[in-house]
Simulated assay, not measured.
Amino acid sequence: MAEVKVLGSWGSPFSRRVEVALKLKGVEYEFLEQDLFNKAPLLLKSNPIHKKVPVLLHHGNPIPESLLILEYIDDTFPGTPILPKHPYERAMARFWAKFIDDKIVPASEKAVFTKGLEQEKGKEEVCELLKILDNELKKKKFLGGETIGLADITGMYVALWLGMREEIMGVELGVTKEKFPHLCRWKEDLLNCEVIKENLPSRDELVAYLRPYYTKVFM
């Protein structure tokens, strides 16, 4: 029996973060696909507060919430670091990861999944937030510096899922190389990292997998 298990969903950017982190560390694990419309007793028991994926099970102990899981993986397993050693750099990695989750993800969902005035406000908001990220990436190759780290793994949502959602929902946010040169360069570099490339589905695969759900729920 695997000592590490991941309760997740194939198409979830949050589940994929955990898998990439485990692959980066060279940790073997068992992935347990969850039906998010008919939640299994194990998921409800493991994450009774939020009842969401992902959940990491390590020796039977559940750890919920993707950012907490990434830090747990980094603290628990040897290998490639996910967080830098220097306290300031660690704090900034956490800052940018939370910026993506707390600001960009909800703004982009408003921009993609709503209509009318609320959608237009969402588009403006997400573009302003992406400008901040673009400006930060003027200074370095990755949000983690010269190598990928916590913020970059979190940023896979921006690099892949955001554009996929635009395509499915027929929404254009205007994320071009002309407007966001550093962000677009970072997206290409991130998606071409070996550990990312090997452990993420392609955009076409994601679109095919998620289109039926998105069009049913949001269109």
Rank of each mutant, 00 (worst) to 15 (best):
E71S: 03
L150H: 04
T114H: 04
E136K: 13
L44I: 07
K187M: 11
K98E: 15
V217F: 05
S66V: 04
P13F: 01
L83E: 14
R211A: 15
E167N: 13
P41K: 10
K179M: 10
F180V: 01
V175F: 15
L117G: 07
I82V: 11
P13Q: 00
E136V: 05
K138W: 14
E128I: 00
D75I: 03
R203V: 13
N199V: 09
E28F: 00
P212Q: 13
D101M: 02
G116E: 00
P106T: 03
G163W: 15
P13R: 00
K45C: 02
L130K: 07
T176V: 13
G145A: 05
N199D: 09
L67A: 11
T147R: 02
L22A: 01
P78Y: 03
Y88A: 15
E167R: 14
E188R: 00
F77I: 03
M169G: 10
E3M: 05
L7T: 02
L160T: 10
H182N: 14
H50Q: 09
L42K: 12
K140F: 12
I153D: 02
V6L: 04
L57P: 01
L160A: 05
F142R: 09
C127L: 05
E146M: 10
L57T: 04
L44E: 05
E3Y: 02
I100C: 12
E146P: 04
V195W: 03
T114Q: 09
G11Y: 06
L210I: 11
R94P: 12
I132F: 13
L206V: 12
V126T: 13
L32R: 03
F99T: 13
V112F: 08
K103R: 12
K23H: 04
P81L: 06
K52Q: 08
I73K: 07
P62Y: 03
R94E: 13
L210R: 02
R185C: 15
S15W: 01
G174C: 09
G8V: 04
V175Q: 13
G60N: 11
K131N: 09
V175I: 15
G170A: 09
T154D: 05
K52E: 07
H58W: 02
H50K: 07
F99I: 11
F218N: 06
L162S: 02
P81V: 04
P48D: 05
K85W: 11
P48S: 12
W96T: 01
N135W: 12
A159M: 06
P84E: 09
N47Q: 11
K131E: 12
N135S: 13
D75R: 02
N135D: 15
V105Y: 10
E109H: 07
E166H: 12
E128H: 13
V112N: 10
K98L: 15
I168L: 06
F218S: 12
S9T: 00
E3V: 07
V217N: 08
L117F: 14
L133E: 11
K5M: 11
T114K: 08
K23N: 10
K138P: 13
S108M: 15
P181C: 04
L133H: 08
T76V: 08
P81F: 05
P13I: 04
H182L: 06
L22V: 00
D134G: 00
G174Y: 11
L191K: 07
R203H: 15
D204A: 15
T176E: 08
G144F: 00
Y209V: 04
T114V: 08
G174K: 13
G11I: 01
L67T: 11
